[in-house]
Design a protein around this nucleic acid. Structure first.
Lengths: 197, 197
DNA sequence: AACCATCAAATGAACGTTCAATCTACAGAC
DNA sequence: GTCTGTAGATTGAACGTTCATTTGATGGTT
């Protein structure tokens, strides 16, 4: 696969992302995706087996982009965990508010029947080795930096607050406020950090 | 509209809810909705103008059911705010884990282009007078019980954590743990309550 | 008889996918 | 430098299916 091919795939991804926002999965025809990407329908089928396959690949593409961004340069060792925790949380919010097009797609994806397929696919391969939020939180517990509670609670408090905040920014068409962001990350950190007895 | 009619609408709602889980909006044909509700396609169009109208009404139906349940008997006065806060939060989680069919639909709805329509529709009518989470939180600030911070933050911490926790229960096919629920509501309350100086 | 609820066949548009034809790029032959 | 063979990329019309919605007939109730 040459440079040209990668460009085409990229164009298809961007076109799909843009259209999905307004019309949803089944509301966006392949013909429109092709039109917006300035290629013909047939070409899409040269790169993807089906519409479903396109969506699944698009999800992997978005997730990799997000994770690569928020964990860039993060090591998460004992001495810097608090700092890294706050960086990662703020990056998560920042990335999603900066690129709402990715957020809205992933949000739709997670709430759709596709998510179940992804879940199944993932259990088969048992993790891909790269850093993700779950492993970052688990790591925090092992390093004695986070409350020794269930991963469910940790994840709910970490991701839930962030996602909900991002939604209020994007859907409320507001801009992000750094002071507010700092206030929130403190709130999340305080509620999850290990209390020193 | 007689009792029969209400039953039919109810049947259509339940049938739609059940099918939407697995196949999504455009993936569930009117014909299947009719089949599962044991009526004919034409009958659906006797009660609803279109498929879109059906979805919008279904959303209002679900939301009313949820809100009616979680705010049942709640007054939210100064002396009982903490107690009511915890009751409301736990009811929110409990209702959604008890009836995942409603949760999954609303979750899909909020992440879809329909949400934008709902948002527009709502701005026109400027609130419906009944108790909802936003007014409950605003009330808490006015009563000097909650942190005097933005509604965005309050809502993100209240709803975000709850929704995220419900998801982990439903999608993780786990059962709800009362001790964990208590732990979480304390965590949410502590992070939002007004600190006494 | 008038009205409402219900039915299921009919309609017409839209969609995902296929495929035979065409184009492009490039390597080797002369 | 020019010709030629080949493999991959690209096209868009065509196919068969499916879907939301309409319609006109039918049954039941007042």
């Amino acid at each position: 696969m040459n440079v040209q091919s990668t460009d085409k795939k990229e164009a298809i991804f961007q076109s799909t992302l843009a259209l999905l926002q307004d019309y949803g999965f089944h509301g966006t025809p392949m013909s429109q995706i092709a039109q917006q990407a300035k290629i013909s329908v047939g070409t899409i089928y040269h790169y993807f087996d089906s519409k479903e396959a396109l969506i699944m690949e698009l999800f992997a593409y978005c997730k990799a982009k997000l994770m690569g961004h928020i964990f860039n340069g993060i090591i998460a060792d004992k001495d810097h965990y608090e700092r890294d925790f706050k960086i990662v949380w703020k990056r998560f919010v920042q990335f999603n508010t900066d690129f709402p097009i990715y957020f809205r797609f992933m949000n739709q994806f997670y709430s759709s029947p596709f998510h179940e397929m992804e879940r199944v696919r993932k259990q088969q391969q048992c993790g891909d080795g790269s850093m993700n939020i779950q492993s970052f939180l688990t790591c925090g517990v092992q390093l004695n930096q986070l409350k020794d509670t269930s991963l469910q609670i940790l994840n709910a408090a970490f991701t839930g607050v962030a996602v909900s905040y991002v939604k209020s920014i994007i859907f409320g068409k507001a801009t992000i406020d750094q002071a507010q962001l700092d206030e929130m990350v403190e709130l999340v950190w305080k509620s999850l950090k290990k209390e020193i007895l």
